[in-house]
Simulated assay, not measured.
Amino acid sequence: MARGERVKLENPDWCKNCGICVSVCPTDILVKGRDRVEIVDLEKCIGCQNCELICPDFVLKVVADDEN
């Protein structure tokens, strides 16, 4: 994990709201929303990539801060 990386919704329309990413987020910044997962406090993201690695639909991506 590189410093200064954060998660973003790369392909939000692909999200099925399964909640798998929510269950693996160590900082609890992801929550199940009405139609898709939502990021509630981006500043707490540590860039661990757990969500990106586990998402079966390639919805989330960890990118450098300046790409968010």
Rank of each mutant, 00 (worst) to 15 (best):
C45N: 02
S23P: 01
K32V: 05
N68R: 08
C48K: 00
E5I: 01
G47P: 00
V24D: 05
D57P: 10
L30W: 12
C48W: 00
Q49F: 03
S23L: 04
L53E: 10
A64K: 09
R6Q: 10
K8W: 09
G33L: 13
T27G: 04
V40E: 15
C45D: 03
C15Q: 06
Q49S: 05
C25M: 00
L53Q: 05
L60Q: 05
D41Q: 08
V40W: 03
T27C: 08
V59I: 11
R34S: 14
S23T: 03
I20V: 15
G47Y: 02
K16I: 07
C15Y: 07
N11Y: 11
L53C: 05
L42E: 05
V37G: 15
C21D: 03
G4F: 03
D35G: 12
V62D: 02
Q49L: 05
P12W: 08
C18R: 04
I20R: 10
V37N: 15
D28H: 11
A64G: 04
I54L: 11
K16F: 09
N11W: 08
G4I: 06
R3E: 09
N50Y: 09
P56T: 13
C25L: 06
P56G: 04
C48L: 04
E38Q: 14
L30C: 12
C55H: 12
G19W: 02
K61T: 00
V37P: 13
E38V: 14
C15S: 02
K32T: 08
V7S: 10
K16T: 07
L30Y: 06
V22I: 00
M1V: 12
D66L: 08
G33S: 13
C48G: 00
D66N: 06
D41K: 11
K8V: 10
I20C: 05
C45S: 01
V62R: 02
C51Q: 03
V40R: 15
G19D: 05
V7C: 13
I54T: 12
I29W: 11
N50R: 03
N11T: 10
N50I: 00
I29C: 07
G47F: 01
P12T: 09
P26L: 01
V59M: 02
C45T: 04
E43H: 09
L30H: 10
V31F: 15
D28T: 02
F58R: 11
L30V: 06
N11F: 14
R6F: 15
D66T: 03
D28Q: 11
C25T: 00
V31K: 15
R6L: 15
K44N: 11
R34H: 14
D65L: 09
V63I: 09
W14M: 12
K44D: 14
W14F: 13
D41Y: 05
P12D: 08
V62F: 00
I39W: 07
C21L: 06
C48M: 02
N50K: 01
L53A: 10
G19K: 02
Q49P: 01
R34V: 13
V59E: 02
E10P: 08
I29T: 10
P56C: 10
W14E: 14
K16V: 06
P12K: 09
V63N: 02
P56F: 15
R6I: 14
V63P: 03
D28I: 06
E52H: 03
C51L: 04
P56A: 13
C51E: 03
C21G: 04
D13Y: 11
D65I: 09
V24H: 02
L60H: 07
C51M: 00
C55G: 14
N50V: 00
I46R: 01
K8H: 13
G4H: 01
V37M: 11
V40T: 13
